[in-house]
Design a protein around this nucleic acid. Structure first.
Lengths: 157, 157
DNA sequence: ATTATAACTTAGTAAAATACTAGGTAATTA
DNA sequence: TAATTACCTAGTATTTTACTAAGTTATAAT
């Protein structure tokens, strides 16, 4: 499995579509400006998303992108898989020799974990994220962002 | 958040310690051979793990590494945070202007997701992984690995 | 029809992250 | 004293990331 800023870009861009695609398609220029991602990089990402039918493009003036299906039918796992490959199967399928079975065992344990994470992200849809955002406040320039920061600070200490 | 092969290396190496550290320390040479990771790269990773006190080194002949604490007191989140930085707080904390609040909103939604993933990985300990491995069979060179592969194939179709 | 728009495509590149090599020093055991 | 292993630093090849540039198609508006 893999989860990088590339995946984040894809998810936030898709969120952009989910939020603004209600009344007409959203252009990549808009997303580029909204998210601060270069237009051409977005085009690369959307080529991958399009290949997996997660978005649908409309050409010409007034064109842009729609979600490929309903927001609650698109999981975070879908999005991340589309742009991040995710094909990281460490199971020693013949090509790697697994001396003493040791490597194979740890790889197999990692695969279990990887599957768990996948299943977790599979259960979260774009619509879920948007819904959750509406429940809590999401003010900008928050003073005390908190959340994970505290946990990490705590661990570092 | 970030989850890369670097994180995988760290987790599998820690699994190696958990599995083989019962009767004496495990050397990086052993892990290097077991996992197929270069010794020097392991040293880099273990420098980070050591800094977070997730491992404890013993010098000299017969030396090596132990887990820094009990295997059920070390979460996957701990390990990945140690080597992968994870500091990806997209909240626009003053330095980025958030025009129309749009970027800020999607970033905030991503942060929610990121926190969720973190909390999920926080709940899984090294000991859990090992335990789960013991429950199911983990034969090497499995014929039909299955699991995620099928899901992805399905999605691709 | 022409023009503007925006999706789509390809090639090349700067910067960063990844994973490694090489060459050490310091602590500990035999 | 010698061997072993952690520990440290610098340099580098490779890959990934993210971007620039320069196009081509399809479509809507003029």
């Amino acid at each position: 499995m893999r989860l990088s800023t590339k995946g984040r870009y894809a998810v936030t861009a898709m969120l952009d579509l989910a939020l603004n695609g209600q009344d007409g398609p959203v252009t990549l220029s808009d997303i580029s400006e909204n998210q601060g991602i270069s237009l051409s990089y977005l085009e690369q990402l959307f080529a991958a998303l399009r290949a997996k039918k997660l978005v649908r493009g409309v050409r010409g003036p007034g064109g842009g992108y729609f979600l490929g299906r309903e927001a609650d039918e698109i999981s975070i796992a879908n999005i991340i898989c589309a742009v991040d490959e995710w094909v990281e199967f460490t199971r020693c399928q013949g090509k790697e020799d697994c001396r003493g079975g040791q490597r194979c065992l740890t790889h197999s344990l990692w695969d279990d974990l990887s599957r768990q994470i996948y299943e977790f992200l599979e259960e979260i849809s774009l619509a879920d994220l948007v819904r959750r955002g509406q429940e809590s406040d999401h003010g900008c320039h928050k003073e005390k962002g908190g959340s994970i920061l505290d946990d990490i600070a705590e661990q570092a200490a």
